[in-house]
Amino acid sequence: MVEHGKLPGEYNIVVKGEYDLFDHQVPVEEFEEMLRENDVPDELCVVGLDDVFEDDDAVTELSALMDRCGNALENRHPLPTIQFAIDGSFQRRQRDFELQTGGDLHRLSRIFGPQIDRRSSGWLTAPF
Protein backbone atom coordinates (compact mmCIF):
# COMPACT_ATOMS: atom_id res chain seq x y z
CA MET A 1 0.00 0.00 0.00
CA VAL A 2 1.35 3.40 -1.00
CA GLU A 3 1.50 6.05 1.70
CA HIS A 4 -0.63 9.10 0.89
CA GLY A 5 1.44 11.86 -0.69
CA LYS A 6 4.22 9.44 -1.65
CA LEU A 7 3.26 7.75 -4.91
CA PRO A 8 6.36 6.54 -6.79
CA GLY A 9 6.66 7.36 -10.49
CA GLU A 10 4.69 10.60 -10.37
CA TYR A 11 5.13 14.09 -9.03
CA ASN A 12 3.25 14.34 -5.75
CA ILE A 13 2.07 17.90 -5.09
CA VAL A 14 1.08 18.13 -1.44
CA VAL A 15 0.01 20.85 0.96
CA LYS A 16 2.52 21.20 3.79
CA GLY A 17 1.10 19.90 7.04
CA GLU A 18 -1.43 17.56 5.46
CA TYR A 19 0.93 14.65 4.71
CA ASP A 20 4.29 13.44 5.94
CA LEU A 21 7.14 14.90 3.92
CA PHE A 22 10.45 13.28 3.11
CA ASP A 23 13.35 14.39 5.27
CA HIS A 24 15.47 15.12 2.19
CA GLN A 25 14.11 18.55 1.23
CA VAL A 26 15.66 20.83 -1.40
CA PRO A 27 14.70 24.16 -2.98
CA VAL A 28 13.51 24.21 -6.58
CA GLU A 29 16.89 25.47 -7.84
CA GLU A 30 18.68 22.45 -6.36
CA PHE A 31 16.06 20.11 -7.83
CA GLU A 32 16.69 21.65 -11.25
CA GLU A 33 20.42 20.96 -10.87
CA MET A 34 19.67 17.35 -9.87
CA LEU A 35 17.58 16.95 -13.03
CA ARG A 36 20.33 18.42 -15.23
CA GLU A 37 22.89 16.05 -13.74
CA ASN A 38 20.51 13.05 -13.77
CA ASP A 39 21.15 12.73 -10.04
CA VAL A 40 17.68 12.69 -8.46
CA PRO A 41 17.52 10.54 -5.30
CA ASP A 42 14.88 7.84 -4.84
CA GLU A 43 12.94 10.00 -2.35
CA LEU A 44 12.91 13.78 -2.49
CA CYS A 45 10.79 16.70 -1.33
CA VAL A 46 11.03 19.95 -3.32
CA VAL A 47 10.11 23.18 -1.52
CA GLY A 48 9.58 26.74 -2.72
CA LEU A 49 7.43 26.06 -5.77
CA ASP A 50 5.17 29.00 -4.98
CA ASP A 51 8.17 31.34 -5.37
CA VAL A 52 8.80 30.10 -8.92
CA PHE A 53 5.49 31.57 -10.05
CA GLU A 54 6.80 35.07 -9.38
CA ASP A 55 8.95 34.82 -12.55
CA ASP A 56 7.38 33.67 -15.85
CA ASP A 57 10.80 32.72 -17.24
CA ALA A 58 11.49 30.52 -14.21
CA VAL A 59 8.15 28.75 -14.72
CA THR A 60 8.95 28.13 -18.39
CA GLU A 61 12.47 26.89 -17.61
CA LEU A 62 11.34 24.52 -14.85
CA SER A 63 8.54 23.11 -16.98
CA ALA A 64 10.85 22.52 -19.97
CA LEU A 65 13.51 20.88 -17.80
CA MET A 66 11.00 18.58 -16.11
CA ASP A 67 9.58 17.66 -19.52
CA ARG A 68 13.05 16.88 -20.97
CA CYS A 69 13.98 14.73 -17.97
CA GLY A 70 10.67 12.89 -17.67
CA ASN A 71 11.70 9.82 -19.65
CA ALA A 72 14.86 9.34 -17.57
CA LEU A 73 12.78 9.45 -14.38
CA GLU A 74 10.16 7.07 -15.77
CA ASN A 75 12.80 4.50 -16.73
CA ARG A 76 14.57 4.38 -13.38
CA HIS A 77 14.33 1.36 -11.15
CA PRO A 78 13.06 1.81 -8.57
CA LEU A 79 10.88 4.69 -9.67
CA PRO A 80 11.70 7.82 -7.68
CA THR A 81 9.14 9.41 -5.40
CA ILE A 82 9.20 13.19 -5.75
CA GLN A 83 7.06 15.48 -3.61
CA PHE A 84 6.47 19.17 -4.14
CA ALA A 85 5.44 20.61 -0.77
CA ILE A 86 3.49 23.83 -1.15
CA ASP A 87 2.23 26.53 1.15
CA GLY A 88 -1.34 27.31 0.22
CA SER A 89 -4.23 25.31 -1.17
CA PHE A 90 -5.51 23.85 -4.43
CA GLN A 91 -8.44 25.27 -6.34
CA ARG A 92 -10.14 23.43 -9.19
CA ARG A 93 -10.67 25.53 -12.32
CA GLN A 94 -12.36 23.72 -15.19
CA ARG A 95 -9.84 21.03 -16.22
CA ASP A 96 -6.94 22.57 -14.34
CA PHE A 97 -5.83 23.12 -10.78
CA GLU A 98 -4.55 26.36 -9.36
CA LEU A 99 -2.28 26.93 -6.42
CA GLN A 100 -3.68 29.61 -4.15
CA THR A 101 -1.09 31.42 -2.06
CA GLY A 102 -2.36 34.49 -0.28
CA GLY A 103 -4.57 36.25 -2.81
CA ASP A 104 -2.71 34.87 -5.85
CA LEU A 105 -3.75 31.98 -8.07
CA HIS A 106 -1.21 30.10 -10.22
CA ARG A 107 -2.10 27.45 -12.82
CA LEU A 108 -0.22 24.28 -11.93
CA SER A 109 -0.48 22.99 -15.50
CA ARG A 110 2.09 25.61 -16.50
CA ILE A 111 4.69 23.46 -14.74
CA PHE A 112 3.20 19.96 -14.52
CA GLY A 113 1.22 19.81 -17.76
CA PRO A 114 -2.48 19.06 -18.18
CA GLN A 115 -2.54 15.56 -16.68
CA ILE A 116 -2.96 16.53 -13.03
CA ASP A 117 -5.13 14.28 -10.88
CA ARG A 118 -6.60 15.00 -7.47
CA ARG A 119 -5.88 12.18 -5.04
CA SER A 120 -7.41 13.97 -2.04
CA SER A 121 -8.04 17.52 -0.86
CA GLY A 122 -4.36 18.27 -0.21
CA TRP A 123 -2.71 15.90 -2.69
CA LEU A 124 -2.38 16.08 -6.47
CA THR A 125 -0.27 13.94 -8.79
CA ALA A 126 1.16 14.51 -12.24
CA PRO A 127 3.14 12.10 -14.43
CA PHE A 128 6.86 12.61 -14.97
Rank of each mutant, 00 (worst) to 15 (best):
D117Y: 03
E33M: 11
V59Y: 01
R118M: 15
Q25H: 11
G113F: 01
I116A: 00
F84A: 07
L99D: 03
P41I: 00
D42Y: 05
V26M: 05
S120Y: 07
M1A: 15
M66W: 02
P41Y: 04
V46N: 04
D39Q: 10
I13K: 00
Q91W: 04
G88H: 14
D39H: 08
I13P: 00
D117G: 05
D39M: 09
A72N: 13
K6E: 08
A85I: 01
E33K: 12
D39E: 07
F31Q: 05
N12V: 02
D50S: 13
D50R: 12
N71G: 11
M66F: 04
E74Q: 09
D20Q: 15
G113K: 02
L79D: 08
E32H: 09
T81C: 14
V15K: 04
T101M: 13
D50P: 07
Q91E: 15
D67N: 15
L105R: 10
A85G: 08
R119C: 12
H24F: 07
R92G: 10
E18Y: 09
H77K: 14
M1N: 13
S109A: 13
F90Y: 12
D20W: 10
H77M: 12
L65F: 06
D117W: 01
P127L: 10
D104S: 15
G113Q: 04
D39L: 10
Y11I: 12
T125H: 11
A58I: 02
L35P: 06
E29V: 13
Q100W: 05
G102L: 09
L108K: 06
F22V: 07
G9L: 09
K6G: 05
S89M: 09
C45Y: 12
M34I: 07
Q91S: 03
E30Q: 04
N38M: 06
L99M: 04
E33Y: 07
L73H: 06
L73E: 01
M66Q: 10
E33F: 08
E18I: 07
R95Q: 13
L21F: 08
M66P: 09
D23P: 05
Q100E: 14
D55R: 05
D39K: 12
E98F: 15
N75V: 11
A85E: 00
I111C: 06
D55N: 14
P114D: 15
P78L: 02
L99C: 11
R93H: 13
V28E: 02
H24V: 14
Q25K: 15
Q100D: 08
R95K: 12
V40M: 03
V14K: 03
M34T: 03
Q25T: 07
M34N: 05
D55Y: 04
E18S: 15
E61N: 14
V2P: 09
C45H: 10
H106I: 08
I86E: 01
F84K: 04
D67I: 06
D55W: 01
G113D: 02
V59G: 10
Q91N: 09
D117R: 15
L62I: 10
Q94P: 07
H106V: 11
S63V: 00
V26W: 01
R110N: 15
E74N: 10
S89I: 02
K16I: 01
E33R: 12
I111W: 01
W123V: 11
P80F: 02
